[in-house]
Amino acid sequence: SDEEKKVRDQAKRLGVNTEQLLKWARRQGDEDLVRIVERLLRS
């Protein structure tokens, strides 16, 4: 999905993997991002 591509691009920009991005999203309190990243991790 578009959202998932955006998440992957953001992880690349930050230089982190998906698990690290999830931690980062939780720290930001970004519920939408957390949900998308969790979906990516499960897929």
Score class of each variant (00 low, 15 high):
S1G: 08
S1R: 12
S1Q: 08
S1H: 11
S1F: 10
D2W: 11
D2V: 09
D2M: 12
E3V: 12
E3K: 14
E3G: 09
E3P: 11
E4T: 11
E4R: 12
E4P: 10
K5Y: 05
K5S: 07
K5L: 06
K5F: 05
K5R: 07
K6P: 04
K6Y: 13
K6C: 15
K6I: 09
K6V: 07
V7K: 07
R8P: 08
R8L: 13
R8S: 05
R8G: 06
D9S: 06
D9T: 08
D9N: 10
D9C: 15
Q10M: 15
Q10N: 06
Q10R: 08
Q10W: 14
Q10G: 06
Q10S: 06
A11M: 14
A11K: 10
K12E: 09
K12H: 06
K12T: 03
R13H: 04
R13S: 04
R13E: 03
R13L: 09
L14F: 06
L14C: 15
L14W: 07
L14Q: 02
L14T: 03
G15R: 10
G15C: 15
G15I: 08
G15D: 03
V16P: 03
V16K: 06
V16W: 15
V16A: 03
V16F: 14
V16S: 04
N17S: 13
N17L: 14
N17M: 14
N17Y: 13
N17F: 14
T18R: 08
T18W: 15
T18F: 15
T18E: 08
E19Y: 08
E19I: 09
Q20S: 04
Q20L: 09
Q20C: 13
L21E: 00
L21K: 00
L21A: 00
L21S: 00
L22T: 00
L22S: 00
L22K: 01
L22F: 01
K23A: 14
K23E: 15
K23R: 12
W24C: 15
W24K: 11
W24D: 14
W24V: 12
W24T: 13
A25H: 01
A25W: 08
A25K: 01
A25G: 00
R26W: 06
R26F: 06
R26D: 13
R27P: 01
R27G: 14
Q28K: 07
G29C: 15
G29S: 04
G29P: 02
G29A: 07
G29V: 14
G29Q: 07
D30W: 15
D30P: 08
D30C: 15
E31T: 10
E31A: 09
E31N: 08
E31K: 12
D32Y: 13
D32K: 11
D32N: 13
D32R: 14
L33N: 00
L33V: 02
L33S: 00
L33C: 12
V34T: 02
V34M: 06
V34D: 01
V34P: 00
V34Q: 02
R35P: 00
R35K: 10
R35C: 02
R35A: 05
I36T: 03
I36V: 04
I36L: 13
I36P: 00
I36E: 02
V37W: 01
V37Y: 02
E38H: 01
E38A: 02
E38G: 01
R39C: 15
R39A: 11
L40I: 09
L40R: 01
L40E: 01
L41H: 01
L41I: 11
L41D: 00
R42I: 07
R42N: 06
R42T: 04
S43L: 13
S43G: 09
S43I: 12
S43M: 13
